[in-house]
Write a protein that binds this DNA or RNA. Structure first.
Lengths: 205, 205
DNA sequence: TGCGATACTGATTCATCAGTCAGTTGACTG
DNA sequence: CAGTCAACTGACTGATGAATCAGTATCGCA
């Protein structure tokens, strides 16, 4: 079945993401992507010059989707605490939220592939910037107290990354409950929130 | 030149680590390892059944070395704050301390290779346990105040992991100075230390 | 000093996969 | 309803790299 180039390209990118999540960047073969869509391998090469380019574009696509979703979720929340919690909800995989597996893989790959490093760095920085903005807004309304929003944003994001690695890679060492609780506790400490700030937000959901 | 099996095996494991740091798990070829030692590829297969086994053993070897060095550094420090700072010194690469690159790569690989997941999980847990013990000791002497040492250890470790990813993968987004400062600040908050706890420890070095 | 055992070689085999290309199909266009 | 162009196929090629194996070198020991 013939399709418009733009349509086919995104279709291939999405399929590639699925394969990469499952097999990793290194283990992904062009034939796997083709099989997912039930097309020939030739078609993949028709749309993408090389496998490396395909992987890079696929990661960029996925990362941008994640970021867009994060921003939408943050925007949808009305209170500063709600926005924070929306950012923390990135941990819950069933939301179709970021596939941490993809990111963790990408970190490894980015150490060698300049192209991936650029994408990963850019998106990661934007991610932190979004979080920083939430904090600044909270400070502006007087709900948060924070001397250095940039530092706080990076620390919270790094904590999330580190904890996400544990739950994603080391199955069973941490519960999702601990993970959420700990990030919230860190936010309460960083931003000097009332201790029940999140328990109320949770009930609201 | 003929060598004793045990000697040759560790030689190969060390060479493998060097190659993996440089090329990643996926990009490491048996021929690269052989070249490092100026031996034939056949020799590598003489000592190790398969490439996968070689990589797993090499990672295990490196991880155990890292952990042993961490423990030694912690033991060498005399005060609780000194021990904490020894643990944080893992960030400084010139010490021959853990190659974060190797760990980050291993996380990615561990999501697919059961063998690597076990090694990574075990060593990571031991790492956190060591940190937790430092905290408990500090609490015992009254120098630290901490309601939940386990949680504090995991949070600090996760923060380190997350920040280490940024400096290792995303060259230039963070300075090493910020990184150290932030981890220390987190420790001060977690353990209710005096604000100058680490500045004094640093001067002592 | 010779002999078995063990470390080691390197040429070869075999499988895998990215990328190519000549040819086919199907959709729009005039 | 041709004709053309873009999307697509699938068999092929060439490179790469893990693993094998028959043979060689070197050691320790009798």
């Amino acid at each position: 079945m013939k399709k418009d180039v733009a349509v086919r390209r995104t279709e291939i990118l999405e399929a590639t993401c699925r394969v990469v999540v499952e097999r990793g960047f290194g283990g992904t073969r062009v034939a796997d992507v083709a099989e997912q869509l039930d097309v020939s391998t030739g078609l993949i090469h028709y749309h993408f010059d090389s496998k490396d380019q395909l992987l890079a574009e696929a990661f960029s696509y996925a990362a941008q989707e994640d970021l867009a979703r994060l921003r939408a979720d943050i925007d949808a929340a009305t209170t500063p605490v709600g926005k924070l919690d929306a950012a923390f909800a990135m941990f819950e995989p069933e939301d179709g939220h970021p596939s941490w597996g993809l990111w963790i893989d990408a970190w490894g790959e980015a150490m060698r592939v300049k192209e991936l490093a650029t994408i990963s760095r850019t998106l990661d920085v934007e991610w932190k910037d979004a979080l920083e903005q939430v904090i600044r807004d909270g400070v502006a309304t007087g709900e948060f107290m924070c001397a250095d929003p940039r530092a706080a944003a990076w620390r919270l994001a790094a904590l999330m990354d580190g904890l996400a690695v544990q739950v994603t890679v080391h199955d069973g060492v941490l519960t999702r409950r601990e993970l959420t609780d700990w990030v919230r506790a860190a936010a309460i400490a960083e931003l000097q929130l009332p201790l029940d700030a999140f328990s109320m937000a949770t009930q609201r959901r």
